[in-house]
Design a binder for these strands. Structure first.
Length: 432
RNA sequence: UCCGCGAUAGCUCAAUGGUGGAGCAUUCGGCUGUUAACCGAAGGGUUGCAAGUUCGAGUCUUGCUCGCGGAGCCA
């Protein structure tokens, strides 16, 4: 009985007879030859059936099997430069586990709506497999980065009693006898509690926004990683962010070169993501916009088009810091040198992928924070626990949030974030 | 909520107001090295829904539904 192996391990079995189980990805034929492309999740294998080498029954079967049938193939592994991947199977047997016909996603072009309706099947396509593997590598890089630097993973609740920042629209649900609860839009306030307990923490989980945004950069459900560090100011925060981004990008380049190739990603755009990253102030960003002739009004937040213009001036992610405090969240500390500015930083990805990181140094003064909550017209009692963090051993601290899907879209070079998450949740789609 | 574009075969798309086609997929036939294989043949249609203009509407008009892109909002 021949050994069962994964396609990724083929190179260790050259000359031996083996078995592989998987799904029929594509099929081609030429007279007395049949080429079956098998996929098993670990790779792709071309299985060659020559009429003279197999029984008539097996040869006939190879004609009948439809795309995405699940099968087990048996044969001898050989090196073959003409084969995609460099190896192929000189096949002698094929066993059908489940025969299928009329698989909807053919090896041709399809429209977005059709593919999203069939997302559960679309995930089997080579591009989608590559994206999921890169997404996983990015997630692993995120966890390794913080784990190796003394951070503790401390996840925040998903059901929360009130808005975290008081700005965006939230999904609402009934919570037993306690009234309304909301799906979290950020774990940040809880991460601050964690930082004052453990020094350095990060949260990593799904977040929810009920805004009716309908663009290539928006999902209603997306994943965010949020580190928070005690005794850390804005500059420390930017140091952490740039080391973090370099680590993520270089990890993907090192371990997922194959997948980036499948996606036809121009990796020279990623190779240059090494420290230091450019840092400009909001004021300098506005200067760039004015020099470009854009009618940007000082004091506004940067729009999507503004971000694209600014990021196009740099070949790596650019950090924009010290925004007008009016356009930023209530908990951000103001610049002692100019109280009109917040000690905030956004990181804009290159090539128009927009904001992938937003962060700040947090306000640590109890009195100042109470004033801000009043100014923003937020319910003080909901924030009492948060204010306790300033009553008992308050320290300068800072952190940021990185949007996973925007990061995946940028690194993979995708048009839309809907392909970066297995099952996207968007304003007009919550299926499959 | 607003602006723009779109909806025709299972899929991707053509079709001057005058008999709705092609490629892929499917089925059948051919080919000993295919690379989204190729060559030949066949089957496959309530042109998103409703109304209107017209001798005649896939095509023009109005309304509706759904989708895509963007704006606002947001990350």
């Amino acid at each position: 009985m021949s050994k069962k192996i994964s396609i990724k391990d083929l190179k260790d079995y050259v000359g031996q007879e083996i078995q592989v189980s998987g799904w029929l990805y594509n099929k081609r034929s030429s007279g007395k030859l049949r080429f079956l492309i098998l996929r098993d999740g670990s790779g792709y294998l071309q299985c060659v059936y020559f009429k003279g080498n197999v029984t008539p029954e097996v040869f006939e079967l190879t004609d009948k099997i439809g795309q995405e049938s699940s099968i087990t193939v048996t044969g001898k592994v050989k090196e073959e430069p003409r084969s995609p991947g460099g190896y192929e199977l000189d096949a002698t047997e094929v066993t059908i586990i489940h025969e299928t016909h009329d698989y909807p996603i053919t090896p041709k072009e399809h429209g977005v709506e059709f593919l999203m309706d069939n997302r559960h099947l679309w995930l089997r396509s080579s591009r989608q497999v590559a994206i999921m593997k890169i997404r996983h590598r990015i997630v692993k890089a995120i966890r390794d980065f913080f784990d190796d630097r003394g951070f503790t993973l401390m996840d925040a609740p998903i059901l929360t009693p009130a808005a975290c920042e008081g700005t965006s629209t939230l999904f609402e649900t009934e919570y037993f006898d306690l009234g309304k609860a909301y799906l979290t839009q950020s774990g940040q306030l809880y991460a601050e509690a964690g930082a004052l307990a453990l020094g350095k923490v990060y949260t990593f989980g799904p977040t929810f926004r009920a805004e009716k945004s309908k663009t290539r950069r928006h999902l209603t459900e997306f994943w965010m990683v949020e580190p928070e560090v005690a005794f850390s100011d804005l500059n420390d925060n930017m140091d952490l962010a740039e080391e973090f981004l370099e680590y993520i990008v270089q990890s993907v380049l090192k371990d997922r070169a194959e997948e980036l190739k499948v996606l036809e990603r121009d990796i020279t755009k990623l190779q240059c993501v090494v420290r230091p990253l450019p840092r400009i102030s909001y004021d300098e960003a506005v200067e760039i916009l004015h020099k470009e002739g854009l009618p940007f009004e000082y004091g506004n937040d940067l729009g999507a088009a503004d971000e694209t213009v600014i990021s196009s001036k740099f070949d790596k992610p650019v950090m924009v810091h010290r925004y007008p405090s009016e356009v930023k969240a209530f908990y951000m500390k103001r610049d002692p040198e100019n109280p009109k500015l917040a000690l905030a930083v956004d990181v804009l990805a290159p090539e128009g992928y927009g904001e992938i990181i937003g962060g700040s140094q947090r306000e640590e003064s109890l009195e100042t924070l109470q004033e801000r909550i009043k100014e923003h017209d937020l319910p003080m009692e909901a924030f009492e626990w948060y204010l306790d963090l300033r009553r008992f051993g308050s320290v300068p601290h800072s952190g940021f949030g990185l949007g996973l899907e925007r990061t995946v879209a940028w690194i993979c070079g995708l048009e839309h974030v809907r392909e970066t998450i297995p099952f996207a949740r968007m304003i007009y789609r919550n299926t499959p």
